[in-house]
Amino acid sequence: MEFVAEIVISALLVMAGLFGLVGSFGLLRLPDTMTRLHAPTKATTLGVGGVLVASMIYFWVFNGLVSWQELLITMFLLLTAPITANFIAKSYLHLNRGTEKLPAAQDCREWATYAEAERAVEPVMTGAPGQDGPNA
């Protein structure tokens, strides 16, 4: 039992280290901000997840205690990584609006984050059911 656990923990640690290194190296090597965003948000989260799962198995097998804090950290990281990536991409789009650094959006439209002001008008046009509506 302990030997199998040792093998699993070691494999998870090696995998996590490789993924973390690949993510950070991709951040260093990729040519553009949008492509740079791809490397750390995916690979590093997988790396940290591997370390946390390895730590969970380690404390469960060798110390006999199940600690749920690793699961909490893993869940928190998995939940917040897409939000962070989305915010960074959105800020980059707004910082470089109208320059040639951005690729063109598909379907002859603008990027969706630019078109927010037009959509905000829509509830006013349809008319909200308020107290001083037209049928009051």
Partner: peptide, 24 residues
């Protein structure tokens, strides 16, 4: 700016991994 923010965010994630490894 966004590269620096992204680099800092990745540094935080790597530091979390280092802290957990140190705890192990």
């Amino acid at each position: 700016i966004m590269e620096r923010v992204l680099a800092l965010d990745t540094m935080v994630i790597n530091m979390i991994a280092l802290i957990v490894l140190y705890g192990m």
